[in-house]
C-alpha cells in the first residue's frame, strides 16, 4: 500500500507573526519556516504504518517554491521514501491544491492520503476534505487514532464534545489532529540519508489541473491587542468579566 502525504511549508509555530504596515500580508522576511505541525503528524503516521508493515511506500509531496525542498528533506529524514515537489510561484489556495493533489493521486495511485487537518498559517482546514470530495473518496478528518486492516481504515475522530469512530473503505483521505501521535526526532544518520533519497521536481504545468487562486486577500490587519491583565476585587466581578467581557463562560 502506498501512502501519499502532502506537506506544507509554513511560518514556524514559535514565530510571532507580524502584519506588514501596508496591510498587504504578513512579514515573511527572515522568518523561520518549517513543516506545518499537523502535516508532520501525518508524515509520522504514514511512517509508523510503514514500520508496522501496513504501508509499502511513503511519498511526500509539497507544493510551492523551491524552498519547499528543505521541508521535503525533513520528511525524508523522518523516514519517508520519496519526495515530490510541485514547483510554482503562484499563490496556492486549498481548492487549487486539492485539484493538483487529485492529479497527483491519479498519477501515483496511493491507497491512502494523509494530510494535516489545517495549516497553521491560513487556518483553512479544507484541503483534505476537498481532495476527498474531488476524488469522491471517503474522508476521516481530525483523526486521533488510525488503524488499517482488511482494506478498511478505522478512524477515531476528534469532534466537538468527544470522539467519533468511523470505518472507511480504502482508498481514503485522512486528516490528522494533534493527538494522533508525537512526531519523532530525526536521527543524524537519517538526516544524511535523506539527502540521497529521490526528490522529483514537477512544474504546475506538468499536471492536468487548474490552480489559479480565486479568493483575493484585500488586506491583512493585526488583531485587537491583547488587553493588559487586570486585578478583580471579588468573585462577583470575576464572574461578570468572564461572562460579559471575555465571553468564555
Amino acid at each position: 500500500m502506498k501512502i501519499l502525504v502532502p506537506i506544507k511549508r509554513v511560518v514556524d509555530y514559535t514565530v510571532k507573526v507580524r502584519v506588514k504596515p501596508d496591510g498587504s500580508g504578513v512579514d515573511l522576511n527572515n522568518v523561520k519556516m518549517s513543516m506545518n505541525p499537523f502535516d508532520e503528524i501525518g508524515v509520522e503516521e504514514a511512517i509508523r504504518l510503514k514500520e508496522r508493515g501496513i504501508a509499502s511506500e511513503v511519498v511526500v509531496v509539497s507544493l510551492g517554491s523551491g524552498a519547499c525542498q528543505e521541508t521535503i528533506r525533513t520528511a525524508l529524514a523522518m523516514g519517508a521514501d520519496r519526495g515530490v515537489l510541485v514547483e510554482t510561484d503562484l499563490e496556492l489556495q486549498p481548492l487549487g491544491i486539492a485539484r493538483l493533489l487529485k492529479a497527483l493521486v491519479l498519477k501515483e495511485q496511493p491507497q491512502l492520503v494523509i494530510l494535516g487537518k489545517q495549516a497553521i498559517d491560513d487556518d483553512s482546514n479544507q484541503t483534505g476534505q476537498m481532495l476527498a470530495g474531488l476524488l469522491n473518496w471517503p474522508q476521516g478528518t481530525f483523526a486521533s487514532k488510525l488503524e488499517i486492516a482488511d482494506g478498511r481504515a478505522t478512524v477515531t475522530r476528534e469532534v466537538d464534545g468527544g470522539l467519533e469512530t468511523l470505518e472507511l473503505p480504502l482508498p481514503a483521505v485522512i486528516t490528522t489532529d494533534l493527538r494522533l501521535n508525537e512526531p519523532r526526532y530525526t536521527t543524524l544518520p537519517n538526516i544524511m540519508k535523506a539527502k540521497r533519497r529521490p526528490l522529483d521536481v514537477l512544474q504546475v504545468a506538468d499536471l492536468p489541473a487548474e490552480a489559479v487562486p480565486s479568493i483575493k486577500t484585500l488586506k491583512v490587519q493585526p488583531p485587537q491587542p491583547r488587553k493588559p491583565g487586570i486585578r478583580v476585587s471579588s468573585v462577583e466581578e470575576l464572574v461578570r468579566k468572564l461572562r460579559e467581557e471575555a465571553k468564555v463562560i
Binding site: 504578513v26 491583512v220 493585526p222
Partner: peptide, 8 residues
C-alpha cells in the same frame, strides 16, 4: 489567520 494573530 495565524491562530488569530492576524485578520484577513
Amino acid at each position: 489567520i495565524y491562530a488569530g494573530n492576524a485578520l484577513a
